[in-house]
Design a protein around this nucleic acid. Sequence first.
DNA 1: ACATCGCTTGATAAGCGCTTTCATGACTGA
DNA 2: TCAGTCATGAAAGCGCTTATCAAGCGATGT
Lengths: 317, 317
Amino acid sequence: MSVPTVSRVLSGSAPVSADKRRQVLRAIQELGYRPNPAARALATGRRSIISVLTSDTTRYGYASAIRGIEEAARAVGLVVALTMLDGDDEESARVAVDLALDQPLAGMIVLEFDIQGSWALAALPDTLPVAAVSSAGEGRSVPRALFDDHAGARDATNYLLGLGHRTVHHVGIPASGRPSGRLLGWREALEAAGAPVPEIVESDGTPRSGLQAGARLARRGDVTAVLCGNDEVAFGVIKGLQDEGSRVPEDVSVVGFDDHPLAEIWTPSLTTMSQDFAELGRMAVDFLLGRLAGVPVAAPRSTPRLVVRKSTAPPSS
Amino acid sequence: MSVPTVSRVLSGSAPVSADKRRQVLRAIQELGYRPNPAARALATGRRSIISVLTSDTTRYGYASAIRGIEEAARAVGLVVALTMLDGDDEESARVAVDLALDQPLAGMIVLEFDIQGSWALAALPDTLPVAAVSSAGEGRSVPRALFDDHAGARDATNYLLGLGHRTVHHVGIPASGRPSGRLLGWREALEAAGAPVPEIVESDGTPRSGLQAGARLARRGDVTAVLCGNDEVAFGVIKGLQDEGSRVPEDVSVVGFDDHPLAEIWTPSLTTMSQDFAELGRMAVDFLLGRLAGVPVAAPRSTPRLVVRKSTAPPSS
DNA sequence: ACATCGCTTGATAAGCGCTTTCATGACTGA
DNA sequence: TCAGTCATGAAAGCGCTTATCAAGCGATGT
């Protein structure tokens, strides 16, 4: 029973007599043998890790995308390695990238929802197959799986305008450097409708910052509709509005983005643009694998779908 | 300029003349050379991956723990590989474990908050350094970093009893097989106080199932205080209670677990047991590294801290 | 019944890209 | 000139896969 025989039993690369096979398998059982993955990777050149670069994984959008990617990767026998991008400068992104590259990677997926993702993308060598999951379509040379939130934001804004609102305010979240697709879609819809384009209220994407944004909007007095960059912010905005005495949706309509699991539980339940993160994760992985195999896959695109709940209504006046 | 020289420049394992070093570095620059991680792992025997086995990563508790682990791992130059446990039988857990083991692992951390985690733990070979992050202290031989939610649940229950509630109801979440620490702490506190121990209301840990639980509790009529297995469920429970006409906290007090970012934004803001996930993640990694180095580290333990907000009050009657 | 052929199966050896030991040769100081 | 340093290159080996080669076996033809 030689070393190659064992290898053949394990990989099935050549026929082995039933007898020997049994023998080998029993020995493996008894010794608890596991092939050394490093040696195997070296000999075969096969890489089985997909590295995912992402910001804060506790945020719903990121967590969902990661989940989708992991599921798709696992389905084809790949493992997902996570590296968080938590610095506020390009150098720290470079450090994170270096760490990730110190593994035998089949490829890399960058969640480019924010500036950290863009930095990471910029720091990547072009020798590695890379896919970005992004919410802005334009620009870079890296192939991307797209959340088409440009279209999503346009749809959401049009929906609010269609309810009779004179204009729609926007609470932005940190974007990837260039103007976010959500912002662009929002502005585009307003301009197309000839509605005034109000100044954007910034947030950092957290409920807490949404709270402040909501309070500020309430104090403005003339706000009747708000499109938020994500659901977490929308929750905060609703609360902020309510704290200042505005009723939702009677005085102000609020729309979110992502369809957070709590959106339907919130009071009032949140009208939002639902995104199929699992699908996009799958798309990103397929995309990457396609590039690996040399088959050029068209950049996948996932368009959010409007889910109308109770946080929106026609203006009361 | 030979192969070993390059290796020496990169690792600093032996002195190299400034001249040669420059030469080597320039060549590396120009060629965009990156050492093959698989070959390096094979030659050195160093493993740089920590594999994390976990259920649904979009849930706040899991996501937070993962974040803590990733941060701690990155700080010591390790990368985190994620494998999700999403099957409902032991076999699928075994498959997931096998996939994870096909990497050169420094060690493994299992988030054993639920039965899937326990299955995974059982399927692991004992040759690998393993740490579990668990919320139940008893039992198995695998060393664990503990969320001491036994104590947490006791504290929460005592707090509610201290407010004057006759007893406290409990909405459970799926646990790791044996009774959860939360359940035990809750029951213990009730028994110690001589309070009746109501039947547990089960949930699956999601807001939606909390909603149903809340509705059911409201219809019971005699419920004045509820301890929920996590914040997501608590949000649902509050909503369910409100939908049935119960006011929170005037009619029913609700306490959650985890201190979800939305807990302070919720209406009413949620009293909850705050857990330091980042710290526990760090603990789990340190723990693992300690075992790796042969230094036996005491099982770390993180005790939740009560955060009182507006969802709790003395009973009105 | 014997020799030959073809096919299956096992072992031997090379090599994946790196680290590390070891030996060599250049160079220094006495 | 010789011992002692030090940088550098040659070679071995990490644990596996795989190509190559040899041996064993039954089947076939005469």
